[in-house]
Amino acid sequence: MTIRIVPATLACAAGLLAASTALAQQSPALKEIPADKAKLTGAMTVDYNSRSMRSSSGTDLYEISDLSVADLMILKGSVQRTPGKSLVYSVKFDVMNPSNPSQIAREVAIMRGDLQIDANGRYNPDAGRLRIDVVKGNQTSSAFGGSIQGRNVTRWWEVGEQFRKAQKEATKIYSRVVDGKLVSIQVKNPDPLRFERTQLAAGPFSFLPETRVSGNLDYDYELGNWLTDANGVTFTYTVADRSFTDRVSGSIRFVEEENTFTDKAGKKRPYTGYYEYNLRWNEQAVNTDQSFFDGGQAQAQSDAFFSAADQSKPGLYGRVYYNDSEDACKRVKGEGGKDQCVGPTRSEVNWDLKAEKLTYAQLANWVKLEMLILGPLTDE
């Protein structure tokens, strides 16, 4: 039987599509954050009790204070981490009135539950019922799901050995377009965080959708950087029956230096290093067949690859500062048989990031993902 589609049917379908598009465009999720509000700022202290001689608990404590996500929400609370076993969340959300950000509703929602880690280093939010519960107003619950394959090395004192092995193993090429030119770097045996249909919970606002994440965030042992490969990290979600996919690419580069910075309260604070964010949303994809590495131009290529001079494209830019200390650290035999600290016993962390031309959904999705990978991100 032949089905005939008459012009009236086509017109009706076109009208429904237009209506769906209009509804999606009206959603706060898809609104671009005003430039003067587009910031991610706040602080966190991490006590690595698993590395300290002062503690026998073996449980690391992350305490988040006033992590402000634009004029959208504020996160504060704690995460308890038993390395190699689990992270237990109790992170509360204050939400701002979209019409009047000076009006703040306190502790409207909470991210709670466990992020279990299995024997293969895989993070499983389903196993610990990790979720966002809206506990005031219209109460709802939305779960995190899927899994994240964690890095192969999670213990600080194994990093040196892993790097020595990496020097003898395969390299991976990373490329991006900078000022219209293809630049590439090579990394020796990177260690990936692999997102396997990872599900980010909806909320705490009803317009922030459930989101699926896939792709890799690779760690470079030699320089301590995080990188995306040619596929990037993709976020897929639906708003008003329209599907959206964002591809995030770029780098989070580690810089080890001692200096001071000015926090959002105007106070000078010391730091021992920082991560420099140069992440782009939906930037020009690179044809991997064109990727190359010119060993004679390695440093120039690296400088260009990590350059954050151009911050005009949609992305997340700025620094996350670390002030690390090693008081009462546990020690292991290092190179040459000398005892060395297994890592910092305390970190004071401060976010100072700018979101350029991102929507509320895009920034919220990235913050939720960072909360899931809090352990690996702060390990080095």
Rank of each mutant, 00 (worst) to 15 (best):
T9H: 07
A29C: 15
K31I: 08
P34G: 11
K37R: 12
G42M: 08
A43H: 09
M44D: 09
S55C: 06
E63P: 00
D66F: 01
D71P: 02
S78E: 14
P83H: 02
G84M: 05
S86F: 11
V91K: 00
M96Q: 13
P98I: 07
E107N: 12
I117A: 05
D118W: 01
N120R: 07
Y123H: 11
Y123W: 10
D126S: 12
R129M: 11
S142R: 03
R151A: 06
T154W: 05
E158S: 09
Q162V: 07
S175I: 01
V178S: 07
V187I: 14
N189F: 02
D191F: 02
P192I: 10
E196Y: 00
T198A: 08
Q199Y: 01
Q199F: 00
P209L: 08
E210W: 00
D218E: 14
L227D: 07
T236M: 02
R242L: 15
F244R: 06
N259P: 03
T260S: 14
F261V: 12
D263T: 07
R280Q: 14
S291V: 08
A298I: 03
Q299I: 13
Q301A: 15
F306I: 10
A308H: 03
D327C: 01
G334C: 05
G334L: 05
Q340P: 00
G343D: 08
T345H: 03
S347N: 08
N350H: 13
D352Y: 00
Q362W: 00
L363S: 04
M371S: 14
P376V: 13
L377D: 14
